[in-house]
Amino acid sequence: MESVISEHIEITPGVCSGKPRIAGHRIRVQDIAIWHERLGFSPDEIVSQYPSITLADVYAALAYYHDHLEEIRQQILEDEEFAKQLQAQTHSLLLQKLGNRDVRED
C-alpha cells in the first residue's frame, strides 16, 4: 500500500515546510484532513473545489493521514499556535482607525 500512497504523496524539504503534500501540488495532507474531518467535506467535494487533484490523491492523503495520525495532528496544532501568535502580534489597521476599540469583543 505504501507504494501506491508514494505515487500521490511527497515530502520535499523546502516545499510546504517539508510537510507531506499531494504530489506536484502545494496542498498538504493536513489540509485534506482538516477539510474532511473539521469541515465535513467528502472526498468528492474536495476534488470539486480543487479540480487539479484527483480522487485518488484525496484518498491517498487520507490514508497517509491515518497512517501518521499523531504526527499530522501535531503539525496541525503547531500551525494553529503559530497563527494565534501572529494574530496576537499583528495590529489591525481597521482597529487603529476606529480608535483602538476592540471590536472583537462586540
Rank of each mutant, 00 (worst) to 15 (best):
Trp35Lys: 03
Arg73Trp: 10
Ala88His: 15
Ile9Met: 04
Leu55Ile: 15
His68Ser: 03
Pro13Glu: 08
Tyr65Arg: 04
Pro51Cys: 06
His36Phe: 11
Asp67Arg: 02
Tyr65Asn: 03
Ser92Phe: 11
His8Leu: 06
Pro43Gly: 11
Asp31Cys: 04
Leu69His: 10
Pro20Phe: 05
Lys84Tyr: 15
Val15Lys: 13
Arg28Met: 12
Pro51Trp: 07
Lys19Gln: 10
Leu55Lys: 15
His36Trp: 08
His25Met: 05
Leu62Lys: 07
Asp79Trp: 06
Ala60Asp: 04
Leu93Gly: 09
Glu78Tyr: 04
Val29Met: 07
Thr90Asn: 07
Ile76Gln: 02
Gln87Lys: 15
Val47Ser: 09
Ala60Val: 04
Gln89Tyr: 15
Lys97Trp: 14
Val29Gly: 02
Val29Cys: 14
Ile27Pro: 00
Glu37Val: 05
Arg73Tyr: 01
Ser92Glu: 09
Cys16Ser: 12
Arg73His: 06
Ile72Val: 13
Gly18Thr: 08
Ile53Glu: 02
His25Lys: 11
Ser52Tyr: 13
Tyr59Gly: 04
Tyr65Met: 07
Pro43Tyr: 14
Gly40Phe: 05
Cys16Lys: 02
His68Glu: 02
Ala33Phe: 04
Ile32Trp: 02
Gln85Lys: 09
Gln75Glu: 10
Ser52Asp: 12
His91Cys: 10
Pro20Val: 05
Leu77Gln: 09
Leu77Glu: 08
Lys97Glu: 13
Leu93Ser: 08
Leu93Arg: 12
Arg38Gly: 03
His25Ile: 00
Ile76His: 05
Gly99Arg: 15
Ile53Asn: 01
Leu62Cys: 07
Gln75Ala: 13
Val47Asp: 06
Glu37Gln: 12
Leu98Asp: 09
Ser17Glu: 13
His91Glu: 12
Val47Met: 05
Glu10Phe: 04
Glu70Phe: 06
Asp79Met: 09
Gln30Phe: 05
Leu62Ala: 01
Ala63Asn: 08
Leu93Asn: 10
Gly99Trp: 15
Pro51Tyr: 08
Ile27Asp: 00
Pro13Met: 03
Tyr64Phe: 10
Arg38Met: 10
Thr54Trp: 04
